[in-house]
């Protein structure tokens, strides 16, 4: 059943409508509710595929569902529709304005409505897909503050990595932080790259979501065996940033296991043809982030490696 989460008039004729698809079966007062949300950033599209397939799958075998699954494909419909990362005509990143305000601007009022609609769910999964610059293998990011509560659920979601962030780097104005602070367990998934859909990653996450529903006794159908994620804190993550400017040409494949001293890629100067920087792995581990967009400034992130502690 399609429901409106937030609606507000735009200047000429149309309204901004944020919608969800509620799929429910065998609902009682004790039923659990899981929310799948995505599309906060208009250039992140991996979640679109996940939503489309989940809706189809759950509806096709609805008798196996117990409880409510709310699917929100587009928290920022105007952004997705106009290939805009942010909320059009609004300066702030939509994921920096939560919990929003009923008396604020249109974006803040929408953020308020979204939180109000999701709050109280048993689990919320907030799907992101990096940006157009970086490609990520499927991963979940949780804060140190919430790890005890969230890790058991994160481990069900069939991701490759769980990255536990230090409290100091947690952004307080995100949807996930807002919901977690209000007692609604919210897991942030990052996977793929902006403006593209990586079908294999989406399928991997869909298997994980079905496994989670099964684990919550909301799904009685078959589920796939899920992988055991690598769990790491900040100190286990090696960063590779470019010091030079130019174009980055990777020499490894995303998701590879790399060793200390391996060349991850090179930065070339297109004017002189020279190699201005060789990016060297600082540790052994999985290359979970790799730059997708070739042009780099001094400081641009080239890669991140989840170290395994062996070298």
């Amino acid at each position: 059943m399609i429901k409106h989460v937030s609606i507000a008039a735009l200047p000429v004729t149309e309204s901004l409508v944020i919608q969800k698809n509620r799929i429910e079966n065998n609902v009682s007062p004790e039923s659990k509710r899981v929310c799948i949300v995505t599309g906060t950033h208009g250039d992140e599209l991996e979640g679109q595929y996940v939503c489309a397939h989940l809706v189809k799958l759950l509806n096709s075998e609805k008798q196996k569902l117990s409880g409510i699954v709310d699917i929100y494909p587009a928290l920022n419909p105007l952004g997705i529709d106009s290939v805009t990362r942010g909320f059009p005509l609004f300066d702030l990143d939509m994921n920096r304005i939560f919990p929003g305000s009923p008396t604020g601007s249109l974006a803040e009022a929408a953020a308020f409505d979204i939180v109000r609609d999701i709050e109280g769910a048993d689990i919320c999964i907030d799907i992101h897909s990096s940006n157009i610059f970086l490609r990520e293998i499927p991963q979940i990011r949780v804060s140190e503050q919430t790890q005890a509560e969230l890790l058991p659920y994160a481990a069900m979601l069939n991701v490759d990595i769980i990255w536990i962030h230090a409290a100091a780097t947690v952004l307080e104005s995100t949807l996930a932080h807002t919901l977690n602070m209000r007692g609604t367990k919210t897991l942030v998934v990052e996977m793929g790259v902006g403006m593209r859909i990586t079908e294999s990653y989406c399928t991997q996450l869909i298997d994980g979501i079905m496994n989670l529903l099964h684990g919550l006794d909301m799904w009685s159908g078959d589920v796939q065996h899920v992988r055991a994620p690598i769990v790491s804190k900040d100190h286990g993550v090696g960063f590779l940033n470019s010091d030079a400017a130019g174009i980055f040409i990777p020499s490894v494949t995303h998701g590879d296991y790399v060793h200390t001293g391996d060349v991850i890629g090179r930065v070339l100067d297109p004017l002189t043809g020279s190699i201005v920087e060789s990016a060297i792995s600082p540790c052994n581990g999985i290359l979970f982030t790799l730059r997708e967009y070739p042009v780099v400034f001094g400081g641009s992130l080239l890669a991140r490696i989840m170290g395994d502690g062996n070298g």
Partner: peptide, 22 residues
């Protein structure tokens, strides 16, 4: 390049993306 706002990046991050470094 990435349309990020320097005034939403403080206190910054020396290993981060360009505007975080700035």
């Amino acid at each position: 390049m990435d349309n990020t706002d320097i005034n939403r990046m403080f206190p910054g991050y020396e290993l981060g993306e360009t505007t975080q470094r700035i």
